[in-house]
Design a protein around this nucleic acid. Structure first.
Lengths: 138, 138
DNA sequence: TTCGCTGCAAAGGGTTTGCATATTG
DNA sequence: CAATATGCAAACCCTTTGCAGCGAA
């Protein structure tokens, strides 16, 4: 997982520029425990730079995905969510409010046998648990 | 898993109408082994009814999802895919061509412990295997 | 004949893109 | 000063919606 500092160093190393917008987007990502949407980050940063554009947020998030520093998630709902943890873990997904929570991997994920894989080369796997979060049980 | 016949009976039972468009969309879904997008179904049906509209395909697929007869999948890529198998199973997803294949569930999926679940009530779970399909290994 | 369905075209919503201007290094 | 970023607005793409005419029961 990145830190704002490590990202700024990386920008510098790669000849990119450390702008207030980028730094604040990094900080907003770092401070969120949930899996924010672009708009969530936008709102956070807008509290400090009121006229930042949503486009800049999207560009910066896309850039981070391409740098491998965050991951994009689109299991459910309309908007993409972003995950700052790039190492393997599982997810709880609320069918009602679309909240996503992380689950540490306690046991290795069972692999399908070679007949079933049908030539597929698996690079990563994850478990999705669908259900209702504590706030959405009625 | 539905059959075209069972769906037509259900339409009849619920006061809906059995139209050639619906019947052909059902057949197209039934005949596809992959997880088709709306456009894939559209192309199939268009071979027989050249002026069917994409809108009708979308409406019919949405209706089937709401009837619980198929499931919508949006793990990856831009477009939704549709899964005619509604019983629990896992998925192989090709990172390159976005193909999705089914995997039978050989072993039950490990559950997170109650501490980690954090009040979540799990209704269903599935494993996603990300990688490269046989045609996309280079 | 009635009511639901279709096709068409427009609208919607999230995300990306192009470009002139502003900012970083 | 050169090169990259930003903000703005328009463009994009998939999907949904509204509506007049059509077709199933």
């Amino acid at each position: 997982m990145f830190t704002t500092l490590s990202l700024c160093e990386r920008l510098h190393r790669e000849g990119k520029k450390v702008t207030p917008q980028r730094r604040l987007i990094y900080q907003a990502l770092e401070s969120k425990h949930s899996h924010p949407r672009a708009e969530d980050i936008y709102e956070d940063v807008r509290a400090i730079i009121p006229d930042i554009s949503l486009g800049t947020v999207y560009k910066t998030l896309r850039e981070l995905v391409e740098m491998g520093e965050i991951m994009e998630i689109k299991y459910y709902g309309e908007q993409s969510r972003f995950d700052i943890i790039t190492s393997p873990h599982n997810h709880l997904i609320c069918i009602k409010c679309q909240k996503i929570e992380d689950v540490l991997r306690q046991v290795p994920i069972p692999e399908p046998d070679s007949i079933e894989k049908n030539g597929f080369r698996i690079r990563q796997s994850e478990i999705l648990y669908w259900g209702y979060c504590s706030g959405c049980q009625s």
